[in-house]
Design a binder for these strands. Structure first.
Lengths: 344, 344
DNA sequence: CCTTTCTTTGTAACCGCTTACAGGCTCCCA
DNA sequence: TGGGAGCCTGTAAGCGGTTACAAAGAAAGG
């Protein structure tokens, strides 16, 4: 690897000048600048990022926290791949890279049944590696850990989790609006007895989807009997169980809005087992637009999240803070109703 | 952040001693070592990784190359999430972290229709950041770029791509063996007219699966007429088209082995459209065991890859090379036949 | 008791880059 | 023509570690 010193020598200038050429080009006379640039190119000079980070205390890296909760081995993020694509592209546009933080998983935390995202470990990593900030991706039970990160004062942005802190914000879909879209769609199709299968009460998107559901139902002048709101956990089995319960009601709903596609698929299964025809006897709407949604039978009507867009928004938010900008407000990205055969 | 120097002062020793306590503890007397360790703990000392990397030329980071090919916007890795889990856990066990390399995507490369994985850019990144090595994850068309990496002499291990180089190896499933399992399963079920829908000819796993298919068919004493081998591209539509063609044959097969679950799902669709009952009139076996496999109707018999295991193997391989070990032989992880209702 | 060897420690150079500070020039204006 | 302002440039001091080398003391061998 060629260094700044070699270039300086070859060009007959000081190392300071060479460094300036790359960092504050305007402070260097045109002639010297061009010579340095040419020589650097010829020697295929690449700045040593470690040295740079050491001198500037900035590494050009953003940390990614995404731990898998060992208590839920089957858990999968519904759109990790698209999220990463969005993150990566927005970061690379600004010359940043993503460092996937890996800790062996604190045994202590696991013992008390806590999430695997260990705030202390990750905050340490951030300082050790001069990370600009963190992107926090939830594994289903990381909200408490993320709250701790948020307090640390490091720039961080959480995805689909509600955090607050001096330099902490979050990005998620417009869950309220999305749920309302779902309800309006069902109402327009003539449904009046509409139930919902929610996500966990502790989960911000779940709460928002429920809120959107209630608001839109009220707007439509429809009542929501308590038994029409069943709590699930976003996973398929819970959706199936919840749907079974709804079907067993004396006055079962004719339509159900599920807070996740996974649960909606569960609902479809329950309907099939009960011999209900979808969408004729039961309309089902999900949320997420996972790949599976288009493939189940019947294909699922759902609210498509802007998956890559969320990644991009998260990246932008963290970069704004890294660059000293104001802490961005939480972002709520619009969702899109995708009508398929499970409703009409 | 407390530094080595502060600790040295507080302990009344030199910085060299402090540094040794952390790097070569045995060369320091027990007393001093304990004092230093205690003080370090009290001050919550964290070594500065940039300084360390600068001095040692090692950063404790492994690069992850995973570029999305903009020409195939819909492309998704069949098991990225599990792969990352495996990679991460194996790396963190050795104190390494994963750096997701992001380049803005060289316009030049895109112009010539090449893959987005730009070997030059990534090799630069490796040097700039003192990365120990690279893990290469294919986006469907990165094989040529990966071959270039492999030549660079940097430690690197590719997943599901056949590379060779001074410090390059790869890990993939035992595709030959898996395909053979599929065939034997079908033969045992009484099938004799067995066709296959392959992946792209240029793809190593695809080629291996075809080879396994042929070998096992020969072993079973069954012939494979040329029209029973149809090339697909791993995606669903190609599987559907291929299956349509097979069904249209004067003597259509009674069973088909597809080189990917996605194509197998396509095959199921084609069968359904043709009014063929699965598995009675047509047995279908896939490869991968993606989530979808268990959910289609009928659920798909398939070969489960050890997805996280592949990540672990890749991590181990790259670490071996980083630590100066012999270049590991390519690894072929066993697959498992998962029998579901699409075959019997 | 003296020499050799081993263990432990400190000194200081170095990794490659950034940047505060100061000095030398040129330019402009009184 | 003297002096202040501005522009370029170089010197050198970090950033926070690692490690070669030397030295001092302790242990071992003859």
């Amino acid at each position: 690897m060629t260094t700044i010193r070699e270039i300086a020598q070859l060009c007959g200038v000081s190392v300071a000048t060479v460094s300036r050429v790359f960092n504050q080009p305007l402070t260097v006379s045109k002639e010297k600048r061009e010579v340095v640039e040419r020589v650097a190119r010829e020697l295929d000079y690449r700045p040593n990022e470690s040295a740079r980070a050491l001198a500037t205390k900035r590494s050009g890296l953003i940390g990614l926290v995404w731990d898998t909760d060992h208590r839920r081995p089957g858990w999968r993020h519904p759109y990790l791949q698209e999220l990463l694509i969005g993150l990566k592209s927005a970061l690379s546009a600004h010359g940043y890279h993503l460092l996937m933080l890996a800790t062996s998983g604190s045994a202590a935390l696991r013992a008390v049944g806590a999430s695997l995202a260990d705030p202390v470990a990750y905050v340490n990593m951030t300082r050790r590696h001069h990370l600009g900030g963190l992107v926090l991706i939830d594994s289903g039970s990381d909200a408490p850990a993320f709250a701790a990160f948020a307090q640390s004062g490091l720039p961080c942005v959480a995805v689909d989790v509600d955090v607050d802190g001096p330099q902490a914000t979050y990005v998620t879909s417009d869950n309220v609006g999305g749920a309302a879209l779902a309800v309006r769609h069902l109402v327009a199709a003539g449904h009046r007895r509409i139930a919902t299968i929610t996500g966990p009460r502790a989960n911000r998107p779940a709460v928002d989807r429920l809120e959107g559901f209630r608001t839109a139902m009220a707007e439509a002048g429809l009542g929501v009997p308590p038994e029409y709101v069943v709590e699930g956990d976003f996973y398929r089995p819970s959706g199936q169980a919840a749907m079974r319960a709804l079907i067993a009601l004396p006055e079962p709903p004719t339509a159900v809005f599920c807070a996740s596609d996974e649960m909606a698929v569960g609902a479809l299964l329950a309907a099939r087992h009960a011999g209900l025809r979808v969408p004729d006897e039961l309309a089902v709407v999900g949320f997420d637009d996972i790949e599976l949604a288009a493939l189940v039978d019947p294909p699922l009507t759902t609210l498509a999240q802007d998956k890559a867009g969320i990644g991009v928004a998260a990246a932008r938010a963290v970069l704004t803070m890294v660059h000293g900008g104001e802490k961005p407000e939480p972002a709520f990205l619009p969702t899109k109703l995708v009508v398929r055969a499970s409703s009409r």
